[in-house]
Design a protein around this nucleic acid. Structure first.
Length: 303
RNA sequence: GGUGUCGUAGCUCAGUUGGUAGAGCAACGGACUGAAAAUCCGUGUGUCACUGGUUCAAUUCCAGUCGACACCA
């Protein structure tokens, strides 16, 4: 079976730019479905703070990977790659064109280009390494990595605990050097990929971010976060919009300050997203209002 | 109205015994292969309120003006 005449249209862009609306309009036009590539909208318990499509929008177009996980589930890019590919394979039997919409650059790339295959780390190992980091600091991790994988030690961002922990985890799990297994080779897919980027002039984007954060508060973000307070240690909740409200609930800051912090951190997140998307020239960029231009562009390419 | 204190980066402030200035936060730029809305790295962006004076040299000393605050009337 081949999907050579099939198209996956990626719609990426910074948070709050308006991806959801554009994707729904396009998906209706093509009478097709949407895959979300948003590492936080996966979680069922997180809705307001992740600006998930609302029920009405979900009724308009069939969405996948929205709220299908619990914050208690363990999930990662690799699982996303596998599940998304499996899903795409099935959906391409029904549709010639599918949309994948989201702001998580790494997750989008995993579906489009694949990532190297590593065994899942044992949870105890991850806990053990984290413990070493907590007790003995980053210097110890650096020391360990230098021993196990000097090549990666040379190239890695040496002050980044997540990178060091990950490399050590792979070395221990596989008994081989991380650098030897990290091929960064690009897999090819049997479907065509079209990448569309949505962006706005920065002042406009920032304005939209402010409005959206205020709206989240009105919709009851504080209540949503309050319910999740017992699970604050979970990775899914280490997220803009949630961690700031946790601080407010701790009485460390006022609600006003928490709101200001969410806005600031969301702006910075948007900036990091753009840095990611800008490293390739594979995206064709549009403003969200250019629906006709996008439609024409897609029609032209998909002939 | 009088007296005093203050006016330095977008914000909060430090500092220069006279040689045009630096922290935190914000901002800006970047990295990124199983935590990615995560994590990490880099960059100081300035009429030192304004106008004069003294001086080789003033953001610093002096005078005046404006503004803020406090106290006294």
């Amino acid at each position: 079976m081949t999907n050579s005449g099939k198209y996956l249209v990626v719609i990426a862009g910074p948070t709050a730019v308006g991806k959801t609306d554009v994707a729904i309009k396009l998906a209706k036009k093509w009478n097709t479905e949407i895959l979300s590539a948003d590492s936080r909208q996966f979680y069922n318990e997180m809705s307001i703070g992740t600006a998930k499509p609302d029920q009405q929008q979900l009724d308009e177009v069939k969405h996948h990977f929205i709220g299908q996980l619990s914050i208690h589930d363990y999930f990662n890019v690799s699982k996303f790659e596998n599940e998304a590919l499996k899903l795409l394979d099935g959906l391409f039997e029904l549709h010639d064109l599918l949309f994948m919409v989201g702001g998580s650059g790494l997750y989008i790339d995993a579906v489009c280009k694949g990532i190297d295959d590593f065994p899942d780390p044992a949870p105890e190992l991850r806990k053990y390494l984290k413990g070493i980091y907590m007790d003995e600091g980053i210097g110890k991790l650096q020391e360990m990595l230098l021993q196990l994988d000097p090549e990666y030690f040379e190239s890695v961002d040496i002050n980044n605990p997540n990178r060091l922990l990950r490399a050590l985890e792979v070395c221990h799990t596989t008994g081989k050097k991380f650098s030897e297994q990290r091929l960064s080779s690009s897999k090819t897919r049997d479907f065509q990929i079209i990448k569309i980027g949505l962006n706005l002039p920065r002042p406009e984007l920032f304005h939209r971010i402010e409005l959206r954060v205020d709206q989240m508060i009105e919709l009851g973000l504080v209540e949503e976060v309050k319910r999740l307070l017992p699970y604050r240690h979970l990775n899914a909740l280490n997220t803009v919009g949630y961690k700031e409200i946790f601080e407010f609930l701790d009485s460390k800051i006022t609600l006003e300050q928490a709101i200001v912090n969410i806005k600031t951190n969301t702006r910075r997140y948007a900036k990091r997203q753009m840095t990611w998307f800008n490293r390739t020239d594979e995206y064709s960029w549009f403003e969200p209002a250019q629906l006709n231009e996008i439609t024409n562009y897609l029609t032209m390419i998909c002939k």
